[in-house]
Simulated assay, not measured.
Amino acid sequence: MTAKTLRSTKVRRTAIAVGVAAALTGVLAGCGHSGAPTAAHPAASTPAKAVTGAASTLHMITNQGHRLAFQVTPGHQPAIVLDAGGGLDSSYWKDIVPVLAKNTGSEIITYDREGMGASDAVPGPWKVQNAVSDLEAGLTALGATHHVILVAHSEAGEIATYLTRQHPGQFAGAVLVDATLPQFSTDTEIARVAAAGQAQVDAVKGHPATKADRQLLAVAADYVADQRAYHRIAWPASVPATVIVSEETPFPTSPSDAEAWRTAQGEFAEAAPNRRLVTAAHSSHDIPVDRPDIVEAQIEAMVNTAG
Protein backbone atom coordinates (compact mmCIF):
# COMPACT_ATOMS: atom_id res chain seq x y z
CA MET A 1 0.00 0.00 0.00
CA THR A 2 1.44 3.37 -1.01
CA ALA A 3 1.75 6.41 1.26
CA LYS A 4 -0.90 8.16 -0.83
CA THR A 5 -3.31 5.24 -0.38
CA LEU A 6 -2.68 5.15 3.36
CA ARG A 7 -3.47 8.83 3.69
CA SER A 8 -6.58 8.46 1.54
CA THR A 9 -7.77 5.64 3.80
CA LYS A 10 -7.23 7.77 6.90
CA VAL A 11 -9.08 10.70 5.35
CA ARG A 12 -12.05 8.49 4.46
CA ARG A 13 -12.21 7.10 8.00
CA THR A 14 -11.99 10.57 9.48
CA ALA A 15 -14.67 11.80 7.11
CA ILE A 16 -17.07 9.17 8.42
CA ALA A 17 -16.19 9.75 12.06
CA VAL A 18 -16.04 13.52 11.60
CA GLY A 19 -19.74 14.08 12.02
CA VAL A 20 -20.67 11.20 14.23
CA ALA A 21 -19.35 12.28 17.56
CA ALA A 22 -20.63 15.78 17.13
CA ALA A 23 -24.27 15.31 18.00
CA LEU A 24 -24.79 13.72 21.41
CA THR A 25 -23.43 16.54 23.46
CA GLY A 26 -25.79 18.97 21.82
CA VAL A 27 -28.59 17.54 23.92
CA LEU A 28 -26.73 18.32 27.11
CA ALA A 29 -24.91 21.47 26.08
CA GLY A 30 -27.41 23.83 27.60
CA CYS A 31 -27.72 22.04 30.93
CA GLY A 32 -24.20 21.14 32.02
CA HIS A 33 -22.27 17.93 31.53
CA SER A 34 -23.49 14.45 32.28
CA GLY A 35 -22.12 13.65 35.66
CA ALA A 36 -19.19 14.98 37.61
CA PRO A 37 -15.74 13.58 37.00
CA THR A 38 -14.65 11.00 39.52
CA ALA A 39 -11.24 11.03 41.14
CA ALA A 40 -9.72 13.40 38.61
CA HIS A 41 -6.08 13.79 39.49
CA PRO A 42 -2.66 13.70 37.87
CA ALA A 43 -0.67 10.60 38.70
CA ALA A 44 3.08 10.59 39.04
CA SER A 45 4.49 12.62 36.19
CA THR A 46 7.18 11.30 33.89
CA PRO A 47 9.11 12.91 31.05
CA ALA A 48 7.62 12.18 27.63
CA LYS A 49 9.75 13.72 24.93
CA ALA A 50 8.63 11.22 22.29
CA VAL A 51 5.24 12.86 21.81
CA THR A 52 6.15 16.50 21.50
CA GLY A 53 9.82 16.51 20.62
CA ALA A 54 10.24 19.07 23.41
CA ALA A 55 10.51 18.95 27.19
CA SER A 56 7.03 17.70 28.03
CA THR A 57 5.56 15.78 30.94
CA LEU A 58 3.04 12.95 30.94
CA HIS A 59 0.11 13.20 33.37
CA MET A 60 -2.22 10.21 33.74
CA ILE A 61 -5.55 11.64 34.87
CA THR A 62 -8.45 9.50 36.04
CA ASN A 63 -12.03 10.41 35.13
CA GLN A 64 -15.13 8.26 35.62
CA GLY A 65 -13.03 5.16 36.24
CA HIS A 66 -10.65 5.30 33.29
CA ARG A 67 -7.24 6.89 32.83
CA LEU A 68 -6.37 9.51 30.23
CA ALA A 69 -2.91 10.51 29.02
CA PHE A 70 -2.23 14.26 28.96
CA GLN A 71 1.05 15.75 27.74
CA VAL A 72 2.09 19.16 29.10
CA THR A 73 4.84 21.35 27.66
CA PRO A 74 5.52 24.03 30.28
CA GLY A 75 5.08 27.73 29.57
CA HIS A 76 3.09 30.80 30.51
CA GLN A 77 -0.56 31.62 30.01
CA PRO A 78 -2.64 31.48 27.92
CA ALA A 79 -2.44 27.71 27.73
CA ILE A 80 -2.91 26.18 24.27
CA VAL A 81 -4.93 22.94 24.18
CA LEU A 82 -4.64 20.80 21.02
CA ASP A 83 -7.35 18.20 20.33
CA ALA A 84 -6.88 15.84 17.34
CA GLY A 85 -9.57 14.39 15.11
CA GLY A 86 -11.23 10.98 15.12
CA GLY A 87 -8.94 7.98 15.23
CA LEU A 88 -5.92 10.14 16.09
CA ASP A 89 -3.97 10.75 19.30
CA SER A 90 -1.66 13.38 20.75
CA SER A 91 1.21 12.38 18.46
CA TYR A 92 -0.69 14.06 15.64
CA TRP A 93 0.64 17.40 16.94
CA LYS A 94 4.26 16.30 17.40
CA ASP A 95 5.67 18.69 14.80
CA ILE A 96 3.48 21.65 15.73
CA VAL A 97 4.02 21.62 19.52
CA PRO A 98 7.73 22.56 19.45
CA VAL A 99 7.06 25.42 17.03
CA LEU A 100 4.25 26.82 19.17
CA ALA A 101 6.30 26.43 22.33
CA LYS A 102 9.18 28.37 20.77
CA ASN A 103 7.08 31.09 19.13
CA THR A 104 4.54 31.73 21.90
CA GLY A 105 6.16 30.55 25.14
CA SER A 106 2.72 29.28 26.15
CA GLU A 107 1.96 26.13 28.08
CA ILE A 108 0.80 23.52 25.58
CA ILE A 109 -1.49 20.61 26.42
CA THR A 110 -2.22 17.63 24.19
CA TYR A 111 -4.01 14.43 25.14
CA ASP A 112 -5.23 11.02 24.00
CA ARG A 113 -8.98 10.59 24.00
CA GLU A 114 -10.31 7.39 25.55
CA GLY A 115 -9.26 4.33 23.61
CA MET A 116 -6.49 6.16 21.77
CA GLY A 117 -2.75 6.43 22.47
CA ALA A 118 -1.94 5.70 26.10
CA SER A 119 -5.48 6.30 27.37
CA ASP A 120 -7.77 3.51 28.55
CA ALA A 121 -10.51 2.25 26.25
CA VAL A 122 -14.13 2.56 27.37
CA PRO A 123 -16.58 -0.05 25.99
CA GLY A 124 -19.82 0.88 24.30
CA PRO A 125 -20.90 3.64 21.91
CA TRP A 126 -18.86 6.84 21.75
CA LYS A 127 -20.64 9.58 23.71
CA VAL A 128 -19.63 13.16 23.13
CA GLN A 129 -20.71 14.14 26.63
CA ASN A 130 -18.21 11.61 28.00
CA ALA A 131 -15.47 13.04 25.79
CA VAL A 132 -16.33 16.52 27.05
CA SER A 133 -16.18 15.27 30.63
CA ASP A 134 -12.75 13.71 29.99
CA LEU A 135 -11.25 16.90 28.58
CA GLU A 136 -12.91 19.02 31.25
CA ALA A 137 -11.49 16.78 33.99
CA GLY A 138 -8.01 16.88 32.50
CA LEU A 139 -7.92 20.66 32.14
CA THR A 140 -9.24 21.09 35.68
CA ALA A 141 -6.61 18.74 37.11
CA LEU A 142 -3.88 20.58 35.20
CA GLY A 143 -5.10 24.01 36.29
CA ALA A 144 -6.03 25.17 32.79
CA THR A 145 -9.31 26.66 33.90
CA HIS A 146 -9.23 30.16 32.42
CA HIS A 147 -7.88 32.09 29.43
CA VAL A 148 -7.39 28.87 27.42
CA ILE A 149 -6.87 28.76 23.64
CA LEU A 150 -8.63 25.63 22.34
CA VAL A 151 -7.54 24.10 19.02
CA ALA A 152 -9.84 21.41 17.61
CA HIS A 153 -9.31 19.36 14.46
CA SER A 154 -12.05 17.45 12.65
CA GLU A 155 -14.23 15.40 15.05
CA ALA A 156 -12.83 17.38 17.98
CA GLY A 157 -14.93 20.33 16.81
CA GLU A 158 -17.94 18.67 18.37
CA ILE A 159 -16.17 18.32 21.71
CA ALA A 160 -15.02 21.92 21.51
CA THR A 161 -18.54 23.18 20.80
CA TYR A 162 -20.08 21.47 23.79
CA LEU A 163 -17.21 22.29 26.13
CA THR A 164 -17.15 25.99 25.29
CA ARG A 165 -20.94 26.15 25.66
CA GLN A 166 -20.66 24.68 29.16
CA HIS A 167 -17.73 26.86 30.21
CA PRO A 168 -17.50 29.93 27.94
CA GLY A 169 -15.55 31.87 30.56
CA GLN A 170 -12.76 29.28 30.49
CA PHE A 171 -11.74 30.03 26.90
CA ALA A 172 -10.11 33.13 25.45
CA GLY A 173 -10.50 31.83 21.91
CA ALA A 174 -10.50 28.83 19.61
CA VAL A 175 -8.98 27.71 16.32
CA LEU A 176 -11.21 25.19 14.55
CA VAL A 177 -9.19 23.21 12.00
CA ASP A 178 -11.52 21.72 9.37
CA ALA A 179 -13.67 20.93 12.36
CA THR A 180 -17.09 19.34 12.56
CA LEU A 181 -19.55 22.20 13.03
CA PRO A 182 -23.30 22.10 13.77
CA GLN A 183 -24.15 23.84 10.51
CA PHE A 184 -22.97 20.84 8.49
CA SER A 185 -25.24 18.29 10.14
CA THR A 186 -28.39 18.82 8.12
CA ASP A 187 -30.72 15.89 7.57
CA THR A 188 -29.44 15.61 4.01
CA GLU A 189 -25.78 15.42 4.99
CA ILE A 190 -26.40 13.12 7.94
CA ALA A 191 -28.14 10.64 5.63
CA ARG A 192 -25.46 10.91 2.94
CA VAL A 193 -22.55 10.43 5.33
CA ALA A 194 -24.26 7.55 7.15
CA ALA A 195 -25.02 5.78 3.86
CA ALA A 196 -21.52 6.36 2.47
CA GLY A 197 -19.91 4.98 5.61
CA GLN A 198 -22.06 1.90 6.08
CA ALA A 199 -19.98 -0.39 3.87
CA GLN A 200 -16.82 0.54 5.74
CA VAL A 201 -18.53 0.08 9.10
CA ASP A 202 -19.77 -3.37 8.04
CA ALA A 203 -16.27 -4.34 6.90
CA VAL A 204 -14.68 -3.26 10.18
CA LYS A 205 -17.26 -5.04 12.36
CA GLY A 206 -15.74 -8.43 11.63
CA HIS A 207 -12.27 -7.46 12.80
CA PRO A 208 -11.90 -4.19 14.72
CA ALA A 209 -8.16 -4.75 15.01
CA THR A 210 -7.00 -1.18 15.39
CA LYS A 211 -7.84 1.56 17.87
CA ALA A 212 -9.09 3.73 15.01
CA ASP A 213 -11.41 0.95 13.80
CA ARG A 214 -12.82 0.45 17.30
CA GLN A 215 -13.47 4.18 17.60
CA LEU A 216 -15.14 4.21 14.19
CA LEU A 217 -17.59 1.53 15.32
CA ALA A 218 -18.23 3.31 18.62
CA VAL A 219 -18.92 6.61 16.86
CA ALA A 220 -21.07 5.05 14.14
CA ALA A 221 -23.34 3.34 16.68
CA ASP A 222 -25.46 6.43 17.38
CA TYR A 223 -24.42 8.63 14.48
CA VAL A 224 -27.78 9.78 13.14
CA ALA A 225 -29.35 10.72 16.47
CA ASP A 226 -26.14 12.38 17.65
CA GLN A 227 -25.83 14.54 14.56
CA ARG A 228 -29.44 15.65 14.62
CA ALA A 229 -28.95 16.84 18.18
CA TYR A 230 -25.69 18.57 17.33
CA HIS A 231 -27.33 20.49 14.50
CA ARG A 232 -29.60 22.19 17.03
CA ILE A 233 -26.88 23.85 19.09
CA ALA A 234 -24.63 26.86 18.54
CA TRP A 235 -21.14 27.98 19.44
CA PRO A 236 -21.13 30.49 22.34
CA ALA A 237 -21.07 34.04 20.98
CA SER A 238 -18.60 35.22 23.63
CA VAL A 239 -15.76 32.91 22.53
CA PRO A 240 -13.80 34.17 19.48
CA ALA A 241 -13.04 31.57 16.84
CA THR A 242 -10.90 31.25 13.74
CA VAL A 243 -12.15 28.66 11.27
CA ILE A 244 -9.59 27.03 8.97
CA VAL A 245 -11.17 25.09 6.10
CA SER A 246 -9.16 22.77 3.87
CA GLU A 247 -9.13 23.07 0.12
CA GLU A 248 -10.11 19.42 -0.39
CA THR A 249 -12.45 19.08 2.66
CA PRO A 250 -13.04 15.60 4.16
CA PHE A 251 -14.94 14.73 0.97
CA PRO A 252 -12.45 15.12 -1.90
CA THR A 253 -14.38 12.73 -4.19
CA SER A 254 -17.87 14.14 -3.54
CA PRO A 255 -18.35 17.69 -4.86
CA SER A 256 -21.79 18.13 -3.31
CA ASP A 257 -20.64 17.08 0.17
CA ALA A 258 -17.49 19.16 -0.17
CA GLU A 259 -19.58 22.21 -1.05
CA ALA A 260 -21.87 21.57 1.92
CA TRP A 261 -18.79 21.39 4.16
CA ARG A 262 -17.41 24.70 2.85
CA THR A 263 -20.82 26.34 3.18
CA ALA A 264 -21.15 25.20 6.79
CA GLN A 265 -17.69 26.56 7.65
CA GLY A 266 -18.57 29.89 6.06
CA GLU A 267 -21.94 30.11 7.79
CA PHE A 268 -20.28 29.46 11.13
CA ALA A 269 -17.70 32.18 10.54
CA GLU A 270 -20.32 34.70 9.46
CA ALA A 271 -22.57 34.08 12.47
CA ALA A 272 -20.65 36.41 14.82
CA PRO A 273 -18.29 39.39 14.41
CA ASN A 274 -15.55 37.74 16.49
CA ARG A 275 -15.05 34.90 13.98
CA ARG A 276 -13.00 34.68 10.81
CA LEU A 277 -12.60 32.16 8.00
CA VAL A 278 -9.22 31.09 6.59
CA THR A 279 -8.80 28.70 3.66
CA ALA A 280 -5.81 26.33 3.72
CA ALA A 281 -4.77 26.18 0.08
CA HIS A 282 -3.21 22.96 -1.20
CA SER A 283 -4.45 20.99 1.81
CA SER A 284 -6.40 17.82 2.43
CA HIS A 285 -8.54 17.41 5.53
CA ASP A 286 -5.25 16.85 7.38
CA ILE A 287 -4.36 20.54 7.50
CA PRO A 288 -2.00 20.17 10.50
CA VAL A 289 0.07 17.74 8.41
CA ASP A 290 -0.22 19.41 4.99
CA ARG A 291 -0.12 23.06 6.06
CA PRO A 292 1.20 23.30 9.62
CA ASP A 293 2.36 26.85 8.84
CA ILE A 294 -1.24 28.03 8.54
CA VAL A 295 -2.32 26.28 11.72
CA GLU A 296 0.64 27.66 13.66
CA ALA A 297 0.10 31.19 12.36
CA GLN A 298 -3.59 31.24 13.30
CA ILE A 299 -2.94 29.83 16.77
CA GLU A 300 -0.23 32.42 17.35
CA ALA A 301 -2.58 35.17 16.16
CA MET A 302 -5.27 33.99 18.58
CA VAL A 303 -2.74 33.92 21.43
CA ASN A 304 -1.70 37.48 20.62
CA THR A 305 -5.32 38.61 20.46
CA ALA A 306 -6.02 36.98 23.82
CA GLY A 307 -3.05 38.80 25.34
Rank of each mutant, 00 (worst) to 15 (best):
A79F: 04
G206E: 13
D120G: 10
F268K: 02
A36M: 09
I16H: 03
E155K: 00
Q198K: 13
A191R: 07
A101Y: 00
V81A: 03
D290N: 11
V27A: 15
W93T: 02
V201D: 02
L150H: 11
A225K: 14
E300P: 05
Q170F: 09
V81T: 06
I16C: 04
G86H: 03
A69F: 00
A196S: 13
A258I: 04
N304W: 12
G86K: 01
G19A: 06
L88G: 00
R165Q: 13
I149Y: 07
R12M: 15
T110F: 00
A174L: 09
A209M: 11
S283Y: 08
Y111E: 02
E296G: 06
L216C: 06
A29F: 05
G266S: 08
L142A: 06
A101R: 02
A29T: 11
N130K: 12
G124R: 12
Y162A: 12
G86T: 04
G266L: 02
A174P: 04
P273K: 05
Q200C: 05
A209K: 13
L24A: 15
A152R: 01
P255C: 03
F251A: 04
I80N: 05
T104W: 06
D83F: 02
V128C: 10
V201L: 08
Q71D: 14
P255N: 05
W93V: 04
Q77E: 15
A271V: 07
P125I: 07
Q298T: 12
A40P: 08
L181C: 04
G138N: 02
A23K: 05
T52I: 06
T5F: 14
S185M: 15
S256H: 12
Q77A: 15
A156S: 11
D178H: 04
A297Y: 03
A297S: 13
K4N: 15
T2W: 05
P78A: 10
M1K: 12
R12I: 08
A15S: 12
